[in-house]
């Protein structure tokens, strides 16, 4: 989303990295110490760094002199270096969301139930049950499957049906968000709208790119089109965030589904991380819209919109997996 200097006549430095890093540090420091003041100062400095970065990026015209390098050799021969960079970055994003899913699935498949079960088994032994903790756990969860009847017998009734299941199904500490969300149509609606909003916004980004690359259009018409499509994308993204926050609010206040339960921790942190990705995308989008507003896009530098689009598509794709896994399953 930016270019880098490759000036043959001495290189220009940039203040952006050191300022943004200082901002990040102060932000994290303030957050750790629960000091909203320092957090706000840190964020301000971070944004200052971002602005410094964009200021250098604004005159970018897509020429090699301004940093658009072509790749040599396999496997990216002929491709722009920045495009390869974005794809590589997205690979690490895949791992980020892969970690979220891995941890979530581990919880949902009861891998970690062992831990609570061991405590209960010890309690049962203290209360007179025969066997060891290991043997009771083995009886209760042979090969990670639950054997309710055998378990109840082995623990003298301590670990009974209510340990594993609530009336609505999953274990007591596993009241997952999907239980509440799928309860009726009106709670499911915001998530459904969000899904379509994101998919649609992925489409409008492509339309913006297509308009920017269209050499047949009058420059003024083209700029206006690019700006409008990008603005629609921004609005759809904003709609997504608003509905998301509304939905969180609903879950917390109407269903008492808070972050202090295990399933709540996973739900809020995972969807929140995705929300942060959307938000960062919107922040960058405002810069793109500003550049469109001053007529900064043409067929020579429109690939920046394409690279932004790759990121935006990824955020969309991540949602398409998060939605069924966290809202429906």
């Amino acid at each position: 989303m930016s270019y880098d200097d490759h000036d043959d006549h001495g290189h220009h430095g940039s203040w952006a990295p050191i300022i943004a890093s200082l901002g990040t540090m102060l932000f994290l420091y303030g957050f750790s110490e629960a000091s909203m003041g320092i957090t706000a100062i840190g964020l301000t400095i971070l944004v200052w760094g971002l602005f410094t970065w964009w200021k250098g990026d604004l005159p970018f015209d897509g020429s090699e002199k301004m940093g658009e390098l072509k790749s040599y050799g396999t496997p990216f021969g002929g491709m722009n270096v920045r495009k390869a960079g974005i794809w590589l970055f997205l690979m690490s994003e895949v791992m980020i969301f892969g970690t979220f899913f891995g941890a979530y699935i581990r919880m949902r498949t009861n891998w970690n139930t062992h831990w609570t079960l061991r405590d209960k088994a010890q309690e049962a032994i203290d209360g007179g049950a025969t066997g060891t903790v290991d043997s009771i756990v083995e009886t209760c969860m042979p090969h990670h499957h639950i054997n309710v009847a055998a378990c109840e017998q082995a623990t003298n009734g301590l670990v009974n049906n209510s340990f594993w299941f609530t009336e609505s199904g999953p274990p007591a500490y596993h009241h997952v968000a999907a239980e509440y969300i799928t309860a009726d149509f009106w709670t499911l609606l915001p998530g459904a709208i969000n899904t379509f909003a994101l998919i649609l916004s992925s489409f409008t980004v492509v339309l913006a790119l297509k308009a920017a690359k269209n050499v047949d259009l009058e420059p003024r018409v083209r700029d206006k089109k690019v700006r409008n499509y990008l603005t629609i994308t921004l609005m759809l993204g904003t709609l997504f965030l608003i509905l998301k926050l509304w939905e969180w609010n609903h879950l917390i206040h109407d269903y008492d589904f808070t972050i202090s339960t295990l399933a709540g921790s996973f739900f809020y942190v995972t969807t929140g991380a995705h929300g942060v990705h959307v938000f960062v995308g919107l922040v960058f989008l405002t810069y793109f819209i500003y550049k469109a507003h001053i007529g900064g896009w043409d067929q020579n530098n429109a690939q920046s919109i394409e690279y932004y689009g790759l990121y935006w598509h990824f955020v969309d794709l991540a949602w398409v997996i998060i939605f069924p896994a966290f809202y429906l399953y």
Binding site: A103, R106, M107, W111, N112, T113, W115, T116, D119, P171, Y173, H174, I259, S260, T261, L262, G264, S265, F266, Y268, V269
Partner: peptide
């Protein structure tokens, strides 16, 4: 949050 807190089923 309680990701690693065994008391609420964390791991």
């Amino acid at each position: 949050t309680h990701f690693y807190d065994a008391a609420v089923g964390g791991d």
